[in-house]
C-alpha cells in the first residue's frame, strides 16, 4: 500500500488526516512543518505528499518547490491543504509544482476520495 507524508503544523489536523488514511490502509508518516517534511521525504520515498500551506519554519509552497526539485519527487503527486479563501495560494502552489489541493474544511470521505483518485 502506498505511503503518504502528511504535513501540517496543527496536531489535530495531522491526527485526523493520519487516522483517516491509516484507516484506509495507507501508511502515513507525519511532519509538523515544511522543513521536517523535506527531511523525512529525503530519507524515504513517499507515494504522495499532502501538506498544509501556512506553516512555521518552512511553508507548504516552499516545501512543494523543494520536493519537485528532487528527482524522486518529480512526478509524485503533491497535494496542498488550502482554504476557500486561498486562491492566491493555489496559484502559488501550482506554480511551485503542486498537483492539486484539498480545500479546508474537508471531511474524511472527501479526503479519501481525493487521495484514492490521485493514487489511482
Amino acid at each position: 500500500m502506498a505511503t503518504i507524508l502528511a504535513v501540517d503544523d496543527s496536531a489535530s489536523m495531522r491526527q485526523m488526516v493520519s487516522f483517516t488514511l491509516k484507516g484506509a490502509g495507507y501508511e502515513v508518516v507525519e511532519a509538523s512543518d515544511g522543513k521536517d517534511a523535506l527531511d523525512k521525504a529525503k530519507g524515504q520515498k513517499f507515494d504522495l505528499v499532502i501538506s498544509d500551506v501556512n506553516m512555521p519554519i518552512m511553508d507548504g509552497i516552499t516545501l512543494i518547490k523543494e520536493l519537485r526539485a528532487l528527482t524522486e519527487y518529480k512526478f509524485i503527486p503533491l497535494l496542498m491543504l488550502t482554504t476557500e479563501s486561498g486562491d492566491d495560494k493555489k496559484v502559488q502552489g501550482k506554480t511551485a509544482g503542486a498537483t492539486g489541493w484539498i480545500v479546508k474544511p474537508f471531511n474524511p470521505d472527501q479526503l479519501l476520495a481525493t487521495i484514492n483518485k490521485v493514487l489511482g
Binding site: 489535530s12 489536523m13 485526523m16 501556512n54 506553516m55 512555521p56 482554504t83 479546508k104 474544511p105 474537508f106
Partner: peptide, 30 residues
C-alpha cells in the same frame, strides 16, 4: 504568526464541525 494561528483555528474548527467558531474566525483571518 498571528495569521497562522487564526488560520489553523479556522481550518480545524471547520473540519471538526465547530461551525460557529469557523465562521467567526473567518473574518479575523481575512
Amino acid at each position: 504568526t498571528i495569521f497562522r494561528a487564526a488560520h489553523s483555528i479556522k481550518g480545524g474548527s471547520g473540519t471538526f464541525g465547530l461551525n460557529a467558531v469557523a465562521s467567526y474566525t473567518h473574518v479575523m483571518e481575512t
